[in-house]
Computed example of a mutant assay.
Amino acid sequence: MMTKKIESDSCAANQANTLIVYGRESCHLCQDMILALQNLQAQVSFYFQVVDIDTNPELVARYGEKIPVLLSSLTNQEICHYFLDLAALDDYLSKFR
């Protein structure tokens, strides 16, 4: 199972800064997005959880090959998919600063 929780203590309680990455274990784009998010956590305070869509048929139906997908856990708003869009993520996070 691919579910991982990666958090920074200062923001774990702040749901606005909590993101979800929907992906697959064997997806290189998913791994790239996860690594980019981990690297970004050194500069920006946020928390994210990785969910393997293959563990849930509804998620497979919803996202299929459109992975990875980065969403807000607060609003379910899609921030970006396939690749980490730093501008879109910054726009999203700036609403809560």
Rank of each mutant, 00 (worst) to 15 (best):
K4D: 08
K4T: 05
K5V: 10
I6Y: 13
E7S: 10
E7Y: 11
S10C: 14
S10A: 10
C11S: 02
A13C: 09
Q15E: 15
Q15L: 12
A16C: 15
A16M: 12
N17P: 02
N17L: 11
T18C: 15
L19N: 00
L19D: 01
L19V: 02
I20S: 05
Y22S: 11
R24T: 11
R24Q: 15
S26E: 13
S26F: 14
S26M: 12
L29C: 02
D32F: 00
I34S: 03
L37A: 09
L37K: 04
N39C: 03
L40K: 05
Q41H: 05
A42R: 04
A42I: 01
A42Y: 01
Q43M: 09
Q43I: 04
Q43L: 10
Q43S: 12
V44I: 11
F48H: 00
F48M: 00
F48S: 00
F48K: 00
Q49G: 03
V50E: 09
V51A: 08
D52I: 07
I53F: 02
D54E: 15
T55I: 11
T55S: 08
P57G: 06
E58P: 05
V60Q: 15
V60M: 14
R62L: 06
Y63W: 13
Y63N: 01
Y63S: 07
G64F: 09
G64R: 10
G64W: 08
E65C: 06
L70V: 12
L70Y: 05
L71W: 07
S72L: 06
L74S: 01
T75Q: 05
T75P: 02
T75K: 03
N76P: 03
E78T: 13
E78I: 04
I79N: 05
H81P: 07
Y82V: 05
F83T: 10
L84M: 10
L84C: 13
D85I: 11
D85M: 05
L86H: 09
A87K: 14
A87E: 14
A87L: 14
A87I: 15
A88K: 15
L89M: 02
L89A: 04
D90A: 15
D91A: 13
D91H: 12
Y92P: 03
S94M: 04
K95N: 03
K95V: 01
K95D: 02
F96M: 00
